[in-house]
Design a protein around this nucleic acid. Structure first.
Length: 965
RNA sequence: GCAGGGGUCGCCGAGCAUGGCCAAAGGCGUAGGCUUCAGGAGCCUAUCCUGCAGAGGUUCGUGGGUUCGAAUCCCACCCCCUGCACCA
């Protein structure tokens, strides 16, 4: 089968599916429903194989369930909300050549479209159109009547309703929020908008307002406000520029670095600078600890960076290695102090003040760690390491000492948050945000932290909401189960989420002019919109008719439908139909995505369902899988390893692409797309098609032996395994068994039967086989199905049922005998390097079976005692003549039977004796063929046996003796 | 830093929750044979080491331990990956 015919087959079946509408699902009261979903893809680029991986798993599940007789709904939509589409079109408008080249060469956008991409909606529509073609070609069994994009006014009405509800219930709050901010763009700078500083987030400093005089403070920045009790001095950089500024129009003057003043402007502080001066001006002055009213000096610290926080640092030499090192330096260099006009006596007298007790350290942990690590001075690179180590230990294990006021005896970890709140109440502390590393915007501007005010939040901190979300998780099926703890952790971890933005595509916040619902916040409940969007699309319901009352009726059954119909012009029948359709399909049974969506989208989805729907409409199942790798690396357009779905289908065909993806991984493992493997798979499918076609063309029949029963027996296990795996969304395991293991079984059967294949049995087996492959490779299976003479679609044929009656342990054991003897013989040939001319096998004598089965029975119950067994055997007149041999055999048999699995022991006991000679005799041709030698079978009891090396006596049940010459 | 997930015979990957047909599935790769005008594809066989009789030896990140017996259970250590907020 050449590539062109693969494409032709795909086109043929795609057209047939569409004409027959087999994937369009409407409510059917007599059928059980399954609704599966996949997070809609964002349309600033083409669908790629990463999308296809997660979605193929959804499709395989949908197809499996459909074949099992469920009424399956698998809808799809397109995400346009957000900033990237706008950003992309702007880059094109600006003539960003590298970017345009990527669109042209990677995405494959034709020139005439590319030029129109300056319009972001054109761009989104282009990718949406292309995406739909690709999603169809890959064979996703989607009901396209429910399609929409997130900028459709009808969808936005749904979002308005959703947010109105959330707000009414108090889940939406307003407040402030720190963001990384580009002063030039006047917008937040997300990771993707950064030239450098990816992953950097604002850090919160506590400012302790040490008093210089009555209305002037030195706001020293710290992550450890509890150390206020251990302060000995403040560090000021003598060479840095500081300002004295009036803050927030009250009477407080702050002394801070010039840089800090600029930053605080963005953090809801109004700054009026009164004077500018060098840090050295402050040296030697005293200030007051606002908590204890003790007085301390201001000392020079060149290590103080005016660019970090306020440029003012307070010193806690007992617990901060840097402070101790700096203090020691100064104490050793009185001349520097004199030069700066400070009395060295003052510095000499400073002693560290110990305030934290921590295991493994004495009075002054900072002093100790500096000595332990042999740190020379503050420029030593190990000083940083020492700081981190000590902070960590003190935070996790440290307890505050008696000199810490009301906090004495408390652990640092437990008291820190409360302490900050208390200090703020006392008006001796404030907060400032700063970045731990430099962040530079794409526009090359240095970013700062800005506090956004009047920001709208989804209040995921709300403990009642969290509780409810956990209830949703508790009743949900999660694939794989290991992710459940992850979900609980993420629910706990989520806090207020800024759910509105001022730019980008999206639904305007209904109650607040100028804000748009943020992109991750508008995609949490839309699965419920699929259930009714068919009606909206088909009846051209105008957006203005979709009032909150309409949605209240549809989703909550609230309100008077007659009244609603009157005001909206939506007929009562239609309102009812939508309500009914929602009730039929909801909740969804499976939503599957990559694991990156666990902490955001999937958790949000859980939260929102908890808030807006009653328990009977909570999600029933969520599936999570790994992130697709390409040739061992993450897939990125910039890395040049980006593979579009269209490109993959063009090259390998839909079936190979699907299976290549699904064979990659399951569970949380990251699948690896390897072009060689997918190519190989494409060849495999050609071979498979030939293999199957040949069987279909072969009209001969043949006799029934145990091998037919063996094949059917095998197939039952395969059906069981594939069904159970698919049920658990283990698509890789399921496909592996369905494709390779079944194939191996069929091959083995054909080999064993040689020219005597029973085509009737094989034909049926193959039909079962391709049914099991249909969820994975639907096109090939439709084609093969039609070759069998069937007229319907295999896509809607009944899934194979496990049939207990076809289980045949005897056939299984008989075939085990053959494979075992085959392996043993090959092993001997390998060891002896004989090229065999003749093989002779001798099956065990009847009396050996007697003792074998007896021992087997004993070992099964775990009490095979040699003495007892021997007594038994010697009392048996049939065995008595062989008692000498039996004495030797018993321990051997105990050893071999002990190693058998319980399952096999049970089977062997159930069958009792198998007629080995006949079984072997029937395999004669096969064995001859396999070894290219004459083969003879005897029983060791045969008088006329050929046995030149007297091997026959070594024969055992299930292990005939072998002679090779 | 916080949270989560891993290290298996050339590679990818099962197995490990319920220790024992585990020298360890399957796929890929590699080698040999068959088929073919040739190439590719396909089919068969082999693929840790040793072995002139169906066997033995050493393996499952490292080092210990429990057990008659450990890839599987326990402890310690080393290494790797992913996510972390206004962004899809």
């Amino acid at each position: 089968m050449s590539q062109t015919t693969t494409t032709q087959i795909e086109e043929k079946w795609l057209a047939k599916w569409e004409t027959a509408h087999i994937f369009e699902a409407d409510p059917d009261p007599v059928k059980q429903k399954i609704m599966v979903t996949f997070p809609f893809p964002y349309m600033n680029g083409p669908l790629h194989v990463g999308h296809a991986f997660s979605a193929s798993r959804v499709d395989a599940y949908a197809r499996f369930k459909r074949m099992q007789g469920y009424n399956v709904l698998w809808p799809w939509a397109w995400h346009w909300t957000g900033q990237p589409l706008l950003g992309a079109s702007q880059r094109i408008a600006k003539g960003d050549q590298p970017y345009i080249r990527v669109l042209r060469e990677v995405d494959g956008v034709p020139e005439e479209h590319l030029q129109k991409f300056v319009d972001p909606k054109y761009m989104a529509q282009y990718y949406t159109n292309e995406g739909k073609i690709a999603a169809k070609r890959i064979g996703f069994s989607v009901d396209w009547r429910r399609e929409f994009t997130t900028v459709w006014p009808t969808f936005q009405k749904f979002i308005e309703w959703q947010y109105k509800n959330l707000k009414d219930q108090g889940y939406v709050t307003q407040g402030t929020h720190p963001v990384v901010w580009c002063p030039k763009d006047q917008s937040p700078t997300g990771d993707h908008d950064r030239q450098s500083g990816e992953g950097v987030t604002p850090e919160e400093y506590t400012l302790i307002k040490y008093k210089l005089d009555n209305n002037t403070v030195l706001p020293a920045a710290t992550f450890r406000p509890e150390t206020i009790y251990g302060i000995t001095n403040i560090w000021i950089n003598p060479d840095a520029t500081y300002v004295e500024a009036k803050i927030n129009n009250n009477n407080e003057n702050w002394i801070i670095s010039q840089e800090a003043a600029e930053k605080l402007e963005e953090q809801e502080k109004s700054i009026t600078i009164k004077r500018v001066f060098k840090g050295r001006e402050l040296l030697g002055k005293n200030f007051e600890n606002p908590l204890t009213h003790d007085k301390f000096p201001i000392l020079p610290g060149w290590f103080v960076d005016p660019k970090t926080a306020t440029g003012i640092v307070y010193s806690v030499p007992a617990h901060a290695p840097f402070d101790w090192l700096a203090l020691k330096d100064l104490q050793q260099k009185p001349e520097i102090l004199q030069e700066l006009g400070i009395d060295p006596q003052i510095v000499q007298q400073i002693k560290p003040i110990s305030i934290i007790k921590v295991d493994g350290f004495g009075e002054y942990p900072a002093v100790e760690i500096v000595e332990q690590m042999g740190i020379k001075d503050q420029h030593d690179s190990k000083a940083d390491q020492a700081t981190k180590e000590l902070y960590k230990k003190e935070f996790h294990n440290g307890k505050l000492k008696v000199n810490c006021g009301p906090y004495a005896g408390k652990s640092i970890r437990g008291v820190k948050d409360q302490l900050i709140i208390d200090f703020k109440k006392l008006d001796i502390a404030d907060t400032m945000y700063d970045l731990p590393e430099q962040v530079i915007c794409r526009c090359m501007t240095h970013c700062v932290v800005k506090i956004l005010s009047d920001q709208w939040f989804l209040n995921y901190s709300n403990p009642q909401w969290k509780e409810k979300a956990k209830e949703v998780i508790a009743q949900m099926k999660i694939y794989p189960e290991t992710v459940r703890t992850d979900f609980y952790a993420k629910i706990d971890w989520l806090k207020e989420w800024a759910c509105a933005r001022t730019t980008g595509f999206g639904t305007p916040v209904p109650w607040s002019e100028g804000w748009i619902i943020e992109t991750l916040s508008d995609s949490t409940m839309y699965m419920a919109f699929y259930t009714i969007n068919k009606h909206i699309n088909q009846n051209n319901i105008p957006p203005q008719a979709l009032t909150p009352e309409v949605f209240d009726y549809i989703y909550h059954g609230k309100g008077d439908k007659i009244q609603i119909s009157k005001t909206t012009n939506i007929t009562i029948e239609l309102l009812e139909a939508m309500h009914e359709e929602f009730l039929y399909w909801y909740p969804f049974d499976l939503r599957n995505s990559a694991k990156e969506l666990v902490p955001n989208h999937l958790s949000f989805c859980i939260f929102h369902h908890a808030a807006l729907f009653p328990p009977q409409h909570w999600p029933k199942g969520i599936g999570v899988n790994g992130m697709l790798m390409v040739e061992g690396q993450g897939m990125h357009k910039s890395k040049g390893n980006f593979i579009t779905l269209k490109g993959a289908i063009d090259k390998y065909g839909a079936d190979a692409t699907r299976c290549g993806l699904m064979l990659g991984a399951e569970g949380m493992d990251d699948p690896d797309w390897r072009a060689d493997n997918v190519e190989e798979l494409k060849n495999k499918f050609e071979a498979l098609t030939n293999f199957v076609s040949n069987i279909f063309m072969d009209s001969r029949q043949s006799e029934n032996t145990f091998l037919e029963r063996w094949l059917q027996n095998r197939l039952q296990y395969r059906i069981l395994e594939v069904t159970e795996s698919l049920q658990e969304l283990k698509t890789r395991t399921a496909l592996q068994i369905a494709l390779f293991e079944v194939w191996n079984d069929l091959r083995w059967y054909k080999q064993r039967k040689g020219s005597n294949v029973n085509t009737v049995v094989l034909f049926e087996a193959v039909k079962t086989w391709i049914k099991m492959l249909t969820p994975f490779a639907p096109y090939m299976c439709e084609e093969l199905w039609s070759q069998t003479g069937e007229t319907g679609f295999i896509s809607v044929v009944s899934w194979p049922q496990f049939d207990e009656n076809k289980i045949d342990v005897e056939a299984e054991e008989q075939e085990n005998l053959i494979t075992d003897i085959l392996n043993d013989t090959q092993n001997i040939l390998k060891a002896t390097k004989i090229t065999p001319k003749q093989l002779v096998f001798y099956t065990a004598a009847a009396w050996k079976w007697q003792i074998y089965l007896k021992i087997l029975e004993k070992t099964k119950t775990g009490e095979a005692k040699i003495s007892e067994l021997m007594k038994d055997f010697s009392n048996n007149p049939e065995l008595k003549p062989h008692i000498k041999d039996i004495a030797i055999l018993v321990p051997k048999i105990i050893k071999t039977t002990n190693r058998l699995s319980l399952n096999r022991k049970t089977n062997m006991l159930k069958i009792q004796k198998i007629d080995e000679k006949t079984v072997m005799q029937n395999a004669l041709d096969f064995l001859k063929d396999r070894f290219g030698a004459e083969v003879t079978i005897y029983s060791e009891e045969d008088q006329n046996r050929y046995d030149p090396k007297t091997r026959a006596s070594t024969a055992m049940p299930y292990q005939p003796a072998i002679y090779i010459q």
